[in-house]
Amino acid sequence: NIFRVLGDFSHLASIFILLHKIQQLKSCSGISFKSQVLYMLVYITRYLDLPWTSSPYNFIFKVLFISSELYIIYLMARAYKPTNDPNLDTFHVEFLLGFAGLLALLFPYKYTILEVFWAFSIWLESVAILPQLFMLQRTGEAEAMTAHYIAALGMYRALYIPNWIYRYFSEPTHKVDTIAVTAGILQTILYSDFFWIYYTKVMRGEKFKLP
């Protein structure tokens, strides 16, 4: 459906915006390395089924997400390392890993490796933006490209919510994926404050600056 396709392309667009920002400005300042590593972990643990993916659409996106994330991490850790300031990226990710690990172990759909890792990846993704938002809060402002990146990344999961509603009514089984939906709503709520400032500042041509 249209919401899901828009969501997936928003996700892909966010990655292109981030890569464009890093290469255009020859800098990864303002980007949380910790959030990027968390996303890498999200892709690895969710796409363990990559070799068995039957849909070409999903297969291409999975490969694109994994490979582009690897490239982003390479750029931040090697090519543009001097522009990456660890002193601003101080969020304690062990809390996020503990949160996702605990929920994945307590409430997986099934106790299989694939299912537990899948649940872990869903919960981890829901909070993986926090080191990035925390960094933004410390610096108090962001380059336009960084703001566009976060907005597109947040829009992706927000668009999955109408997709789930649409699927609930259009598919005969009327099933709800409680893990994905709960985590998706949590993820979108975490972005809400950012979305508001993005809407009131950046979309009106102003700089992204916290009040």
Partner: peptide, 10 residues
Amino acid sequence: GSKEEFKDEL
């Protein structure tokens, strides 16, 4: 199964 169908999402 229901959630298998949802695994078709990214």
